[in-house]
């Protein structure tokens, strides 16, 4: 490839990439803010997972009965409070019916 051919190939590459970058996009992805409710729902999922793990490990024989009961109680209380908070946040938001469906 001669120098001139190289420059022509480079110019064509520039043109193609320029078209790709600035090609009009009707609906670019929107950068929406994550809400507190999103956060609480994520946290709820995590607490459920922690509860599932705890139960599984208990069934596998890793926890004595008393330890399991105490830890489950702690996790359930955390989860109950969280669900209560989720419901409070949902009540104060518009369109809550749609959200509850999640």
């Amino acid at each position: 490839m001669t120098e001139m051919q190289g420059i022509i190939a480079g110019a064509m590459l520039t043109l193609a990439l320029g078209i790709y970058i600035f090609w009009p996009e009707n609906a670019p992805a929107s950068q929406s803010e994550k809400s507190r409710l999103d956060y609480l729902l994520e946290r709820k999922e995590q607490l459920y997972e922690n509860l599932r793990d705890l139960t599984f490990e208990y069934r596998a024989g890793k926890y004595p009965e008393e330890d399991f009961v105490a830890q489950r109680s702690l996790l359930e209380n955390e989860t109950a409070l969280l669900i209560k908070e989720i419901e409070r946040v949902e009540r104060t938001r518009p369109g809550r019916i749609a959200l509850r469906a999640r």
Binding site: L47, S73, L74, L82
Partner: peptide, 16 residues
């Protein structure tokens, strides 16, 4: 329903 409630505010922290 939750059997009993105890302070567990840790779960609610963050996310603001």
């Amino acid at each position: 329903p939750a059997v009993r409630t105890a302070p567990a505010e840790a779960a609610l922290k963050g996310g603001d």
